[in-house]
Design a protein around this nucleic acid. Sequence first.
DNA 1: TATAAATGTTAGACTAACCTAACAAATTTT
DNA 2: AAAATTTGTTAGGTTAGTCTAACATTTATA
Lengths: 228, 228
Amino acid sequence: MQVLSYTEENYIKGLFQLTIEAGDKTEAGTNEIASHLGIKPASVNDMLKKLKDKKLIQYEKYGKSSLTKEGKKLAVDIVRKHRLWETFLFEKLAFSWDEVHEVAEQLEHIQSKKLIDKLDQFLNYPSADPHGDPIPNAKGELVIEARKSLVTEEVGHTCKMVGVKDNSAAFLQYADSLGLAINQRIKIKSRQAYDDLMEIEVKGVRNRISPKFAEHIIVVCNDCNKQH
Amino acid sequence: MQVLSYTEENYIKGLFQLTIEAGDKTEAGTNEIASHLGIKPASVNDMLKKLKDKKLIQYEKYGKSSLTKEGKKLAVDIVRKHRLWETFLFEKLAFSWDEVHEVAEQLEHIQSKKLIDKLDQFLNYPSADPHGDPIPNAKGELVIEARKSLVTEEVGHTCKMVGVKDNSAAFLQYADSLGLAINQRIKIKSRQAYDDLMEIEVKGVRNRISPKFAEHIIVVCNDCNKQH
DNA sequence: TATAAATGTTAGACTAACCTAACAAATTTT
DNA sequence: AAAATTTGTTAGGTTAGTCTAACATTTATA
Ligand SMILES: [Mn+2]
Ligand SMILES: [Mn+2]
Ligand SMILES: [Mn+2]
Ligand SMILES: [Mn+2]
């Protein structure tokens, strides 16, 4: 397994997030990758050629890009490191939910297999990071449960929050203020037909939230599964 | 306080090690810095000009280099991070003595004041790393005790090991095999006049060691201090 | 003190990772 | 199907950090 540069790692991880992890797509375009990484399309184009040469992605001129098996393996490994570090920061160093991501962006690039395996052990092999995202195991296996967005949840159902789609501090702080956290139960009380505002109940407290906000809360719902 | 690149940090740290930390010098030459960092003198020369522009070092053409106050502050901070991470790896993740340095070389460059302060707290504000080297506090204060090399120790004295001067795995493993570790008491039994081999006693076991080896073991000695 | 050796500098080149500006292809809209 | 828009590529530059080869200065030695 080849060793990538800091920058190459970020491209591979970005492509993973845009395809496999997004769930609904298997490939991503040059401009899309560029805006995701905050880099100009011309620069991305250069890197795509390089990653193709290294057999980490599939790419043809004017076509979309996708990870090869090897590329995916490397990407999952970076995601594993990122989430284990976030868990460490949250659980052991008392970082708050919205502070862990930025530091993990740096820590995810530390190269030491032993370090990450020992960290995993130290944290008692966690299955999810502080945002509820699943942590791949040492073999690179990623268990993706049946998840959905809160915005699609039905009135009357009670679901459990398992993650977020937005990691910005603004979003996370807003979520906090509503009592929302990983593993928090959420009951959908009503949905206003006119503007789609949802009324939710969290720890006995009711609040109304926008579809834009609800869109970014990921939940699992037993009620949905029952009456499938 | 300016933010340095990964590379600039390594130069500043290297110069710190060659001057202030070596104890016996206040400045270092271009070739000396080059061989310490494993970089060619021509490249070092470029960087010295750049660091001078940033007011981190004093340097004149054909002269030696030394850290400015600002440069020293930055260097001490990197050393603090390096040693806190080594302590973390050793104490919390069960890394062995000779494995921590390599990984800490990467971790020392992570940029987050909060991270390092929290780590310090998590480790209960340690004063020395696994090799016995002092850890600067959050204010950048570095307590340097009166230390000496084992090779200069007198026969009959009992001293305490507090550090090493060589961090290579070969050296550290050799030290381990002799029962040597931080805070380990060492008694000097004799010194052979012909070849300067020293006989030491560690945990009741006697061994003979070369001056080359003894040179790299750092000790503090109460017996020496008594008869000042 | 003249010469040799060691030390330090400069010039020119290279790579990785980025950029802007101009252009080309593909897709969408009219 | 033509035009407009979006998407992607190319050419040519820049910067940081490295190198080699040639040259200059300082220091040590004969
Ligand atoms: Mn994250
Ligand atoms: Mn990253
Ligand atoms: Mn070290
Ligand atoms: Mn370093």
